[in-house]
Write a protein that binds this DNA or RNA. Structure first.
Length: 308
DNA sequence: TTCATTTGACCGAA
DNA sequence: TTCGGTCAAATGAA
């Protein structure tokens, strides 16, 4: 197990160096390193789950098939691992009996395309980080019963979060089908045009492809939001859910690619993902977007045909 | 005023 | 009895 973790660390370092390299590096090499990282992460996750109470049943097949990244680039960058938890196993240490629940191990706990409202936070026994509880924003107006729990895992670098989804969304206001317009004239900026019930029609970020699906983090004047994004002094990853682990977030790594407030808690995990975009303007927007929205419902042609 | 988060209290499954 | 999950009052921001 320790060797795996060491190997993962080394692979990550290589990956980061490749991403940030000034010299041209073949995409194949980057992909290979990314795949090595993914394999190690999967192995660690499986080991961890087997060493624990066995509550989490990892499903490698599902990881590949059911992931939004199933086009072959899955997990590259986000390192998301999708797992299914059977109700029976949930009951092993969770009080609530759920008909269905799904657990994901991800570096991007918020970008699932839904609007969530935080309703609780709890210190969990034998866990360094508190668990945050979210429910669908439309629970009151549409009776949507979907909830999710977000808890940072220990000893992960970059920080990873175990996100447990409970219940299905029955609301109609899912944050789907946003329009995203890339300002090709600007190396560091892109224009995001979101057409949803929540967000202002047009939002311009310095570079903030990942924004929150949690209402409060996007509420209000977008300029303020942008300002806060760029204000690294007041910008802390733990502000979102009370995760008091600022050292896990290396702001220096996200200087020009500072994720939005939503992605902020993702810390340096995001920086690795976007470093490729920084060095290459032909970065894959779908990689970034796939974590934000239901990739099934995102029409690339719509995005490509959009104009500023 | 509205709507969000925070947080202590409470409920109930194990 | 413990502790995870939820409620709801307090508080804050816009």
């Amino acid at each position: 197990m320790e060797d795996l973790v060491k190997g993962q660390e080394i692979a990550k370092q290589v990956h980061m160096q490749l991403q940030g390299s000034e010299f041209p590096v073949g995409d194949g090499l980057k992909d290979s390193v990314a795949k090595i990282l993914e394999c190690i992460s999967n192995a660690i996750s499986k080991l961890s789950s087997s060493e624990s109470t066995g509550e989490v049943c990892q499903s490698p097949a599902l990881t590949a098939v059911d992931s939004p990244f199933s086009d072959g680039r899955k997990s590259e960058g986000t390192g998301e691992i999708r797992t299914i938890v059977t109700p029976k196993k949930i009951g092993s240490n969770k009080r609530r009996k759920t008909s269905d629940a799904e657990t994901r191990l991800t570096e991007t706990p918020l970008d699932d395309g839904h609007a969530w409202r935080k309703y609780g936070q709890k210190e969990i026994l034998n866990s360094r980080f508190p668990r945050s509880y979210f429910r669908c924003t439309h629970k009151t107006d549409q009776g949507c019963q979907a909830t999710k729990q977000v808890q940072r895992t220990e000893g992960e670098e970059p920080a990873k979060y175990q996100v447990t989804y409970i219940g299905q969304h029955t609301c109609n206001n899912q944050l789907k089908g946003p329009r995203l317009i890339l300002d090709s004239n600007s190396r560091d900026s892109c224009v995001l045009n979101f057409q949803s019930n929540y967000y202002s029609p047009k939002v311009e970020f310095p570079f903030s492809p990942l924004f929150s699906s949690v209402k409060h983090e996007f509420k209000g004047d977008t300029k303020d939001a942008i300002a806060s994004h760029n204000n690294k002094e007041s910008f802390r990853p733990c502000d979102f859910a009370g995760w008091n682990d600022p050292p896990a977030f290396n702001s220096s790594q996200t200087t020009s690619m500072m994720p939005s407030t939503s992605g902020s808690e993702l810390g340096d995990g995001i920086s690795g993902l976007y470093s490729s975009a920084e060095s290459d303007q032909t970065f894959d927007m779908d990689i970034m977007l796939s974590g934000m929205f239901d990739i099934d419902q995102f029409d690339p042609s719509e995005y490509l045909n959009s104009s500023k």
